[in-house]
């Protein structure tokens, strides 16, 4: 197990180097790089040269790249042009909101998706199967931001059941401990604050859950159908094992392997979906901030946020790989 962890960590190196090179090239070599971001589009050559010298962009590439890596390692990514705060601080301030939203979405997707996929497979051809197959096709084809608008329009604007925007009502002065609004309320005993945050979370989380839910239903269904046809399931059933045991130990344990991988990959892609979802609900996480960073041309925030998200994405994939080897002993052999 330890050797596997080490090998996986070593495999991260080229990926991370690739990431840093991509960002470096983008930052420095594309038009719309730092100089024109600072000076605007109509800068003269001389001004651009001056800024480039100031930022050390006239030095050889490898030196610039080295300094770039050093800055990343020190978490020094400049300051946001919108707020004047360091990018890292802006990130840590907003990241919990996005994590909370992503976790809520993933809980919905897993809690609904796996049982639904299983039932659809066990009652193949029935109305539940037909419904879940159709539903997951719709979930995959509908743009996340369109779904967000529909849910917001129906449940928040027309019916008024849920709030339209934000993470928490402004009249609630919740204590901030972890940054996770729902959790904070539980810790401090301010249950009304927790409840309020939870109500705000429902629509964004359901929206964000749509794609992972659709994929999980599809994969679980396909995977269960495949496993159910295996000899060992028939053996287990024919030797009179309880249905519960067959389902848990023989079907689900094997059928869930590909689903676990998918869940991991989906967790990473949730971060992209969160940008779209948050921007419709003005949720106040990194997604909403990226949206405003785009319109305000706040390049330090864009680069910094995207790099951190990419790092987190890569780390999640690593954890998924390791989790996979825990569930499936066969992987460990290699």
């Amino acid at each position: 197990m330890l050797r596997l962890v080490i090998r996986r960590l070593l495999q991260l190196i080229p990926t991370l180097l690739g990431l840093s090179v991509l960002l470096f090239v983008w930052l420095n070599r594309l038009p719309g790089g730092p100089a024109s971001a600072i000076l605007g589009e109509r800068a003269t050559e001389a001004e651009v040269a001056r800024i480039n010298k100031l930022l050390g962009l006239d030095q050889p590439l490898y030196i610039q790249y080295g300094r770039f890596l050093k800055r990343i390692a020190e978490l020094d990514l400049g300051t946001s042009t919108q707020t004047g705060q360091p990018v890292w601080d802006e990130f840590t301030l907003r990241f919990p909101a996005t994590v909370e939203l992503s976790i809520a979405a993933m809980i919905i997707a897993i809690a609904v998706g796996i049982p639904l996929g299983y039932l659809a497979a066990r009652h193949r051809g029935g109305w539940l199967d037909l419904g879940s197959v159709t539903g997951s096709l719709i979930g995959i084809c509908i743009p996340v931001f369109f779904l967000a608008l529909i849910l917001k329009g129906i449940f928040a604007v027309e019916m008024g059941i849920f709030p339209t925007t934000g993470r928490q009502s402004t009249d609630i002065n919740a204590t901030d401990i972890t940054g996770f609004a729902v959790l904070d309320g539980l810790i401090t005993g301010e249950f009304d604050a927790s409840w309020d945050a939870l109500v705000h979370l429902v629509l964004p989380a359901v929206t964000l859950a749509s794609i992972p839910l659709a994929v999980i239903v599809r994969m679980t269904r396909a995977s269960v159908l495949e496993v159910v046809g295996e000899d060992y399931v028939r053996t287990a059933e024919s030797k009179g094992l309880e249905r519960k045991v067959v389902r848990g130990r023989h079907i689900m344990r094997n059928a869930l392997l590909p689903v676990v991988t998918a869940v991991g990959l989906l967790t990473g892609s949730l971060l992209s979906g969160a940008v779209l979802t948050e921007s419709v609900f003005t949720f106040g996480g990194i997604g909403s901030f990226i949206r405003t960073a785009i319109s305000e041309r706040d390049y330090p925030v864009l680069v910094g946020f995207i790099m951190f998200i990419a790092l987190i994405y890569v780390l999640i994939n690593l954890l998924v790989d390791l989790a996979y080897s825990l569930i499936d002993p066969r992987v460990r052999v290699h």
């Binding site: 594309l30 719309g32 024109s36 992209s272 940008v275 785009i294 946020f305 995207i306």
Partner: peptide
């Protein structure tokens, strides 16, 4: 290994006329 949408956002946001 990258969140594509985010990269695309930053890339296409930074390309300017010309």
């Amino acid at each position: 290994a990258f969140p594509l949408l985010l990269f695309a956002i930053s890339l296409s946001a930074s390309v300017q006329d010309g």
